[in-house]
Every structure is written in structure tokens, then in C-alpha cells.
Amino acid sequence: MKYRRALLMLALAVVFGIAAVMLASRWLLRQGPGAARIVVSAADANLGQRLSPDMVKLADWPADGLPQGALRDPAALSGRVLKTSVLRGEALTEAKLAPAGTLGGLSAVISEGKRAITVRVNDVIGVAGFALPGTFVDILVNTQTEPGVKQEHAISKIVLERILVLAVAQEVSRDETKPRVVNAVTLEVTPEQAEQLDLARSVGTLSLVLRNQVDPTPGVTPGATKGTLLGLAKEPAAPALAVAAQPPKPPKPPREPAPRYCIGAIDGVRSSRECL
């Protein structure tokens, strides 16, 4: 009898414990936002790479933390091209993919309205190999002034600013930080900048100037000449403020002579006249 009562109490405790766990689990599920299944990267991939079915997979993601533009159909991503590098387990969104039908390679990385142009560099011009994909550079040209100028002299001038480096040699990976000395650098420019850069490399020597990636401040300079470098030339004076032209004043009319008072005098046969 004793054991039967103890077993009964133990069975009741087990039943109540299971019921408490189930109720608590249901309460927690109701409190939480739940999860959604979205497409993530199954392996590390570089920008410009085409996605294959084995490179993507579905994964659970908190419903309240879904990335904007998250994708849910992995089959629809077959053949799409990445516009940025992704890591394993990273959510794939439309913002990270080139438009459907885009071929892989560098052309998928170029922004709309921009062009890619390659310039020849060396270990000095290429900032000792630190001009890597994803960094920004200024373009410096060293040339001579136009023929026919009264005083021809050499000048160094920054002609293009904040130009994105797309690739070095034939590599577009932006994950590396080690310097790489190469003989060619591909830059992303507008059509107008492409024309200026092509002219600059034909009239002088180009140099790349590495700049801070988050510094948008323009470097407005007059350029450096031999005179300014050696302190032989004075800096140009600040332009004087323009003064609004005033209409000329009309000429003053000639002043009329003051009236004079005259007195005549007669002395015998002589006469005289005095004026005041």
C-alpha cells in the first residue's frame, strides 16, 4: 500500500512536470516573433562570382530581424552574380546581386553610369601596392604648361579625386589587406573622368594618391610649380571683392559770377568807374 501510494505520487509529479513544460513552451512560442527561412550563402564567395546551387541554402532567421530584400527561393538565384563579397552563413539580398542576366566578372561590379579604365603603375605610382580594390585614390599628373605661355614651367596638379579602385592586375577581391605591387590598376570613373584621365596620361606622368575611405573633403589646390616648391614665387593674392558699378555723377553746371556793384565818378573833365 505504501509503495503504491508513492508510485502514484511519483506518476502524478511526472505528469504535472510534462504539462508544465508544454505550457511553458507554448507560452514562449507565443511571446517570441518566430523564425523565417531565407537564403544564405553556403560558402565564402567573392564579388563578380556567379552563384551555383551548391553555394546557397535555406536557413532559419528571426522574423523580427529579417534583412531588407531577403530572398526565400534558392533555385531563383542560380546563375546570379554577386556585387559584393559574402561570407558563409550571410543572408543574400537583392542589393548584393547584379541584375538578372548579368555576366560574371568585373562588368558586374561597375556601378550604373560609371566606366572602368586601366592605368599602368609601378611600386611608386601604385602607392607601394596599397592601392587595393575597394580603396579610394586621387589622380596626380605632372606635366608642362601649354606651349606659348609666357613662362613655361612644370606643374603637378590633382586632376581627379576620390576614384574607386575596382581591381589590381586581374584581381577584384576586396578582402585582402596586404599590399600588392602590380603593373596595372583598374579604376571606376564617369565618362567625363575617363576622358580627363586618358588625356592626363598622354600629356604627363600619373601618380596615385591614397586617401582615407571615409573622408569626402575635396583637396582644392592651385597645383605645385618649381617656383612655389622652392619659395621663389609669391602666392597669388586673394581676388578683390567686386564693387558694384555706380552711375557717373552728372557734371555740375558752371557757377555764375556774383553780381558786381559799380559806381561812376566825374572829376572835372575826367570820369572813373569803381566796382565792388
Rank of each mutant, 00 (worst) to 15 (best):
A194Q: 15
A194G: 13
A194W: 00
E195D: 12
E195V: 11
Q196N: 09
Q196S: 11
Q196D: 12
D198Q: 09
L199N: 10
L199D: 05
L199E: 08
L199S: 03
A200S: 09
R201K: 15
R201G: 07
S202Q: 13
V203H: 10
V203A: 14
G204Q: 04
T205G: 04
L206C: 00
L206T: 02
L206S: 01
L206N: 07
S207C: 00
S207A: 03
S207D: 12
V209H: 03
V209L: 12
R211A: 03
R211L: 09
R211F: 02
Q213T: 03
V214D: 14
V214N: 11
D215V: 00
P216Y: 06
P216K: 04
T217C: 01
P218I: 03
P218F: 00
G219K: 11
G219H: 11
G219Y: 08
V220C: 03
T221D: 12
P222G: 01
P222Q: 05
A224V: 12
A224I: 13
T225K: 03
K226L: 15
T228M: 04
T228L: 11
T228R: 14
L229C: 00
L230Q: 14
L230A: 06
L230W: 02
G231K: 07
L232E: 14
L232W: 06
A233P: 07
A233D: 13
A233H: 01
A233V: 06
A233W: 00
K234G: 15
E235Y: 02
P236E: 15
P236N: 10
P236Q: 10
A237P: 12
A237T: 10
A238H: 04
A240E: 14
L241V: 06
A242D: 11
A242C: 01
A242F: 05
V243H: 08
